[in-house]
């Protein structure tokens, strides 16, 4: 394999041809913020928080998708880079509920002194986002910063979709589409600020093509897509990640050998995920592996007790 030499933040780096600038940065332990990037999905380079400065390039370039070239001189922390990342984070934070983004993202936002309030107070939630027509939008007076805040969608027993938290990173679409599940139950609809993740004609998930594999939830970086069980525990203020253990095991529902991560709180499974770094699943599961655990919950002295009652009792005992 051919090797390529480049300079990142003054450091000489040699990497294999064909890797991305993000890979090259990581090879020298220089982390970059990312939102729409995931190792197991094709880069869509839409969130633009991973942009870096490449000498000779008119604009900044997305490190997640740009391939290395010999002789590149790259800045990942220049004033220009910091500026773009700050403003992009401000745009997101001023329009989307980012309360559930991961810890590293929060740290990046702090390090860039992100101030979403500079665009004005957030506008009130709206309920017509799924009906908007491309090329047309309502009168803008500028008093408040428009947001994507809207009612949460609860239309089935397994998932909730809270698009007030959606940054439109396309990951769920990719995971549901040809990067993994190939079910294509959801896509981006509409245009511009009114672009949104949608089923055909905004039908409910059970009416649409969804097969409830949960792989969209598995890749969502902002908590916009969530297991209904987690959502309800959070609503009841019973979701306590610091009390949860995560145990890796193998799914029992067929012979493929998918690895599961069982998230257990007070001896109850509260969520099932799959490790992204495992060659069999790459983080993806089917409906059985993701949700088929209920039968081990129903046994014993806890038989038929709703999970929130059990957890509430466990908390009062501890």
């Amino acid at each position: 394999m051919t090797e390529v030499a480049l300079v990142i933040d003054g450091v000489d780096v040699v990497v294999n041809e064909g890797v991305t600038l993000l890979d090259a940065c990581r090879s020298i332990a220089k982390q970059q913020p990312t939102l729409c990037y995931l190792e197991t999905l094709a880069p869509v380079n839409v969130c633009r928080v991973c942009v870096v400065e490449v000498e000779g390039s008119r604009t900044l370039v997305p490190s997640c998708s740009r391939k290395v070239e010999g002789g590149m001189v790259v800045q990942t922390d220049s004033e220009r880079v910091r500026h773009s990342r700050r403003v992009v984070f401000e745009m997101l934070a001023s329009s989307v509920n980012l309360a559930l983004v991961d810890h590293p993202t929060r740290e990046w936002m702090e390090s860039y002194n992100v101030d979403p309030a500079r665009f004005g107070p957030p506008a009130a939630p709206t309920s017509d986002r799924d009906q908007r027509h491309a090329g047309h939008h309502g009168e803008v007076v500028g008093g408040a910063a428009e947001t994507v805040h809207q009612p949460i969608k609860v239309d089935n027993s397994l998932y909730v979709r809270d698009y007030s938290r959606c940054i439109l990173c396309y990951k769920c679409v990719e995971a549901c589409g040809d990067d993994a599940q190939n079910t294509f139950a959801i896509a981006v609809a509409g245009r511009g600020f009114d672009a949104r993740i949608s089923t055909e004609f905004d039908v409910t998930l059970p009416e649409g093509a969804c097969v409830f594999c949960g792989n969209c939830i598995g890749v969502c970086p902002t908590g916009a897509l969530m297991f209904r069980s987690e959502h309800e525990l959070r609503q009841a203020d019973l979701w306590e990640e610091d009390r949860q253990s995560v145990t890796r095991t193998v799914c029992s529902f067929c012979g493929v050998g998918c690895n599961l991560e069982l998230h257990v709180q007070d001896n109850r499974i509260v969520k099932v995920t799959s490790p992204q770094d495992h060659s069999v699943t790459e983080g993806h599961l089917c409906i059985k592996g993701r949700f088929g655990y209920e039968y081990v919950q129903e046994l014993g002295d806890l038989a038929s007790t709703p999970v929130d009652v059990v957890l509430r009792r466990a908390r009062s005992d501890s």
Partner: peptide, 8 residues
Amino acid sequence: DESCGQCV
């Protein structure tokens, strides 16, 4: 109105 909406 004409932004495709893809990038932030």
